[in-house]
Design a protein around this nucleic acid. Structure first.
Length: 280
DNA sequence: ATGACGTTCAAAGAACGA
C-alpha cells in the first residue's frame, strides 16, 4: 500500500494538481490537511473519477482535514479523546473543537490525518493550545498503540514543528525564539515520538524540507522547514519499504506551500521478515 | 519595512498561515 500526507492549502484551489499526483504516483491513501472548506464544498467528483472515496471533516474556511482512499475507509473519527478546542478571546475547558483531525481504518491500518495548531507566537494563547493539543495526542497515541500493538497505527500530517536544527533552513525562523523551533514544542514532539510511534521517513530520507513560505523566494533559495511527518507504530514501521518527499510538487503553477510525503508498506510481510514462514 | 504571497469570506480589508 502507498500512503501519503499533504497539506494542500485549499483543496478547491488545487484538486487537479492533487488528483494528478495521486494517479501519477499510484497512491492508495492520502491524508490531506488545510482543505479550507466544508464537506459540501469539497471537489469530490475529481477524486471519485480517479477511484477514491473520501472522509472529510471541515467546518468553515479554516483548517479542515480529509482522507482519500481506494482501499476502503472505515470507522471514521473526527477527534481523539481529550482533544482541546480553541476560540480566540475565550478561555476554558469546553471551547469548540476545530477541524484538525480525522481518522479512518484503511486496509487494516489505523490512520490519522492531523493539522497541528500553528501556535502563532510564543506569547499567544494559540501556543498554549498547540502544546495542550499535542499532549492529548500523545496520550491517545500511548493508549492506542498499547491496546492494539498488532494493528499498524500512523499519525500523518502537518505537525508545525521542526524537531531538529537541520529541519529549519529559514533564517527568519530563529531557534528557540519563534514557534516551530521552541524548546517546548520540540519536547512535545519528542514525547509524542516516545509514546509508541516513530518518524518512519527520516531514516530513509535523512535530508529535505516539506514546506517553503510563498514569500521572499524561499523555495528558490531552499529556505524551508521540515514539518510534515509520517509517524508509525512498531507494527507500521516494520512494514515500511520506502519513503519519499516530493519536492517537485512545490514547482510549477499554483503549488501548495507544502509538498507530499509518501510511504510504501508491504502489508503482507507481517513485519517478521527475519522469522521464516512455516507451512503445513 | 508592521511588506513581500496565497487563500478564504459578510466582498473590502481582515484573518490566518509558519
Amino acid at each position: 500500500m502507498r500512503i501519503a500526507t499533504w497539506n494542500v492549502n485549499s483543496i478547491r484551489a488545487r484538486s487537479g494538481r492533487v488528483v494528478d499526483w495521486l494517479v501519477r504516483e499510484d497512491v492508495d491513501v492520502l491524508a490531506m490537511q488545510e482543505i479550507k472548506c466544508k464537506p459540501e464544498q469539497f471537489p469530490i467528483e475529481a477524486f471519485e473519477a480517479a477511484g477514491y472515496e473520501l472522509a472529510i471533516h471541515g467546518l468553515n474556511q479554516w483548517n479542515g482535514v480529509a482522507i482519500a482512499s481506494r482501499v476502503g475507509l472505515d470507522d471514521v473519527e473526527t477527534e481523539f479523546p481529550g482533544m482541546p478546542g480553541f476560540q480566540k478571546g475565550h478561555e476554558g475547558p469546553d471551547l469548540p473543537r476545530e477541524a484538525r483531525a480525522i481518522a479512518a481504518t484503511v486496509d487494516g491500518v489505523r490512520a490519522w490525518s492531523l493539522y497541528v495548531p500553528n501556535g502563532r507566537s510564543l506569547a499567544d494563547p494559540h501556543y498554549v493550545y498547540k502544546l495542550d493539543w499535542l499532549a492529548a495526542l500523545t496520550e491517545h497515541t500511548r493508549a492506542e498503540t498499547a491496546a492494539h500493538p498488532e494493528r499498524p497505527f500512523t499519525l500523518m500530517g502537518d505537525f508545525n514543528i521542526a524537531p531538529f536544527d537541520e529541519d529549519n533552513g529559514d533564517p527568519a525562523v530563529i531557534e528557540g525564539a519563534t514557534t516551530h523551533v521552541s524548546p517546548a514544542e520540540r519536547t512535545a514532539f519528542a514525547e509524542l515520538t516516545g509514546a509508541g510511534v516513530t518518524d518512519v521517513v527520516r531514516p530513509l530520507v535523512p535530508e529535505g524540507y516539506t514546506y517553503w513560505d510563498y514569500k521572499q523566494l524561499k523555495f528558490p533559495r531552499n529556505e524551508g522547514l521540515r514539518i510534515d511527518f509520517v509517524l508509525g507504530s512498531d507494527a507500521f514501521a516494520d512494514v515500511v519499504t520506502s519513503a519519499s518527499i516530493h519536492r517537485n510538487e512545490r514547482k510549477g503553477d499554483a503549488p501548495s506551500d507544502h509538498v507530499p510525503v509518501l510511504v510504501e508498506l508491504d502489508l503482507d510481510s507481517g513485519g517478521d521478515d527475519d522469522v521464516p514462514m512455516i507451512f503445513g
